[in-house]
Amino acid sequence: MSLVDKLKDQMKEAMRAKEKVRLGTIRMALSAIKQVEVDTRETVTDEQAIAILTKMVKQRRDSIAQYEAANRPELAQAEAEEVQVIETFLPTPLTEDEIAAIIDATIVKVGAASMADMGKVMGALKSEVQGRADMSAIGALIRAKLK
């Protein structure tokens, strides 16, 4: 079953259970996926859907930080609830040890020796860790290892 099909099934369950936040968040996710399908005129793959959901989580985390800085905890809480719903559809996050092992293996695989090779490492890692780890944190770890 594809990720889009899972989202649609969960949307139906949220409707039956009258879970407004969950229903609204799933509808928002399906809408974002549909927008990409319309724009590209192609069916979204699971990898693309994960990328879309990851982007949605990142946007909401940015919003949470801005709402907290503006002293609006009720809006930050609403965004946090949406993040929790979206994360249920993403793959399980990698641990720090798993991330370090993947980075080390990728550096060896692409033969990276300096910061000039960081793009190669990031490109090789992206498909493997997409949706399972924060790419900005991974970039910082790669920088530390390629000094």
Rank of each mutant, 00 (worst) to 15 (best):
V110M: 05
A76L: 03
A101C: 01
P93Q: 12
E82Q: 15
I102M: 15
A49R: 09
V110I: 07
T88L: 06
A49Y: 05
I50G: 04
I52E: 08
T88P: 02
T106D: 11
L75D: 11
R60V: 13
E81H: 12
A76S: 01
Y67E: 10
A65F: 03
A101R: 11
K109E: 13
A51V: 03
D97N: 02
Q84F: 11
R72Y: 08
E79F: 14
I50F: 03
T95C: 11
Y67H: 13
I99N: 06
A101K: 10
T88G: 00
L53M: 13
E47K: 10
A101G: 06
V108D: 13
E74D: 14
E79D: 15
T92S: 14
A101E: 01
R72C: 09
A105S: 04
L90S: 10
E98N: 08
A78Y: 06
I64N: 06
T54I: 00
K58E: 12
Q66F: 12
I107P: 00
E74S: 13
R60W: 10
I107W: 03
R72A: 09
E81Q: 15
D104V: 06
D97F: 05
V85F: 07
V83H: 08
Q77S: 15
T88I: 01
V108G: 00
N71D: 08
I103V: 05
P91F: 13
I64M: 14
P73V: 10
A65H: 06
P93K: 12
V110A: 09
F89K: 07
I52Q: 09
R61P: 13
I103E: 01
A69F: 00
L75E: 13
L90N: 02
V108Q: 07
A49W: 03
V110R: 01
K58T: 12
V83Y: 00
K109P: 00
A51W: 01
D97E: 15
L75M: 14
T95H: 08
A100P: 04
M56F: 05
K58R: 14
A65V: 11
V57P: 00
I50A: 10
R72E: 13
I52A: 09
Y67L: 10
A100T: 13
A76N: 01
A70M: 11
E68R: 08
